[in-house]
């Protein structure tokens, strides 16, 4: 059994940008930010900064990191970890791209 679900096309996210995916019923959905870097790497991270819950999807993406728009914490997209000297970690999800289609694994 595969847990991979189809989310959206890679083209639908700008390079150095993100889209939010809402999982679950409206009102109590989990928001996951899907990031696309300048080199077309795709990462899925919970849209919730470990600092004060800022929406990471709204941040500026640079290299493999995003800077939270609230208080400028930098989060490593691959691990979800805050870049030192800040400490904390955002949840990450497995993602993959096949034929220009982004998949997300929820487990």
């Amino acid at each position: 059994m595969s847990d991979w679900i189809e989310i959206l096309k890679l083209d639908h996210i700008p390079r150095q940008g993100a889209r939010v995916v809402e999982l679950g019923p409206a009102g109590e959905a989990t928001r996951v930010a899907i990031f696309r870097t300048a080199t077309d790497q795709v990462y899925a991270v919970k849209d919730h900064c470990p600092h004060r819950g800022g929406p990471l999807s709204q941040g500026i993406v640079h290299g493999g990191q995003v800077t939270c728009p609230m208080h400028n914490w930098k989060i490593d997209l691959a691990s979800g970890a805050a870049v030192l000297p800040d400490k904390g970690c955002a949840r990450t999800y497995d993602s993959k791209v096949e034929d220009g289609q982004i998949f997300l694994r929820l487990a």
Partner: peptide
């Protein structure tokens, strides 16, 4: 337009 529209994954798919 992409800036403003979230992608919704319905509950049944999310729990698949």
């Amino acid at each position: 337009a992409h800036e403003f529209q979230p992608v919704r994954v319905p509950a049944d798919a999310a729990h698949a």
